[in-house]
Simulated assay, not measured.
Amino acid sequence: MPDPNSTYAHQLAGAPRRVISVKPVVLPAPAGRGEDLQVRVSAPATGGELPVIVFSHGFGWSMNGYAPLADHWAAQGFLVVQPTHLDSRTLAVPAEDPRTPRIWRHRIEDLTLVLDRLDVLEEAVPGLAGRVDHGRIAVAGHSWGAQSASVLLGARVLDPDGVPGEDMSDPRVKAGVLLALTGLGDDLTPFAAEHLPFLRPSFDGMTTPALVVAGDQDRSHLSTRGPDWFTDPYTHSPGAKSLLTLFGAEHSLGGIPGYEVAETTDESPARVALVQRLTTAFLRSALHPGDTGWRTAAAALESDPHPLGKLRSK
């Protein structure tokens, strides 16, 4: 990995900016959700034409998590929006709640609601109004959050007969970052197949450009396969995709949910730093055609004599 003090590393990351973060911003709940949607909005204190990243957290987390990513992206010039989904431990929705079977859909609807109300969120942060580029929007997510984000990119959930369900893709979304996204449903364990039937995706229609990030030591109790299960979103989706496989990484990919978090069993600041740099470079290039940062970052990883991962693109 490049020396973090090198000229190249600073050029790749860009000069970090001071960040303003506001929470909770509350959006009224649509029918059936029950709880109003609480959102955290983070943005650089200065600058205009800010591209947008809507980030979907993993199971049990909330708008308060994923500081290693959210803070970094905001400091690099993105508006980062983090909704709190109904499965968050902060809301304590019981398993027997009648909304539970639809939480996976509520998650996707949360992301769509954020896109619908970007103007409200923009007004909620002092000094942000008029600085957001509503034409440059990306979604990102980790684990279940990546599954939620992938649907806006064109992935679809299969019904019990294997027929793709509703198309909930969103043309406003121009790119995605999918971190530790689960693979095909044919490889679910019996428990997962019974209790998590929405984990049966088709990636055939996931045409929006995306970076898939997987750990080569990520072994899920939901799958009968090994870590290669998490590469399915890359393998089975058409064109304009890249796959970053992190060496030695488990499901937290080195600690992206937060610093010194109990769930992180593969803590690696260097690995997290690589995810920060490559996701930033990918999103800049995907949202600003002509930006060469992604090619530069990919070339640096390929030429690194001691790489922390490998990159493939198609």
Rank of each mutant, 00 (worst) to 15 (best):
V19W: 00
I20R: 15
S21Q: 05
V22I: 10
P24A: 11
L27Y: 01
G34D: 09
G34R: 06
D36Y: 05
L37S: 06
P44N: 04
G48Y: 04
P51E: 02
H57D: 00
G58V: 01
W61K: 08
S62T: 07
S62E: 00
A70W: 00
A70Y: 03
H72Y: 15
L79M: 11
V80N: 07
P94S: 07
E96S: 04
V114Y: 04
D116E: 13
V120M: 05
V132I: 13
R136V: 11
V139W: 03
A140I: 05
G145L: 09
A146R: 03
L158Q: 11
G162A: 10
G162P: 07
A175W: 08
V177H: 06
A180V: 04
L184Y: 04
F191Y: 14
A192W: 09
A193W: 00
L196N: 08
L196D: 07
L196S: 02
F203A: 10
D204H: 10
G205M: 05
T207S: 14
R219W: 01
R219H: 10
T224I: 11
T231K: 06
L246Q: 03
I256S: 01
P257T: 09
G258K: 00
Y259K: 04
A262M: 03
F282I: 11
F282Y: 15
P289F: 14
G293A: 11
A297G: 09
G309E: 13
G309Q: 13
G309T: 10
K314G: 11
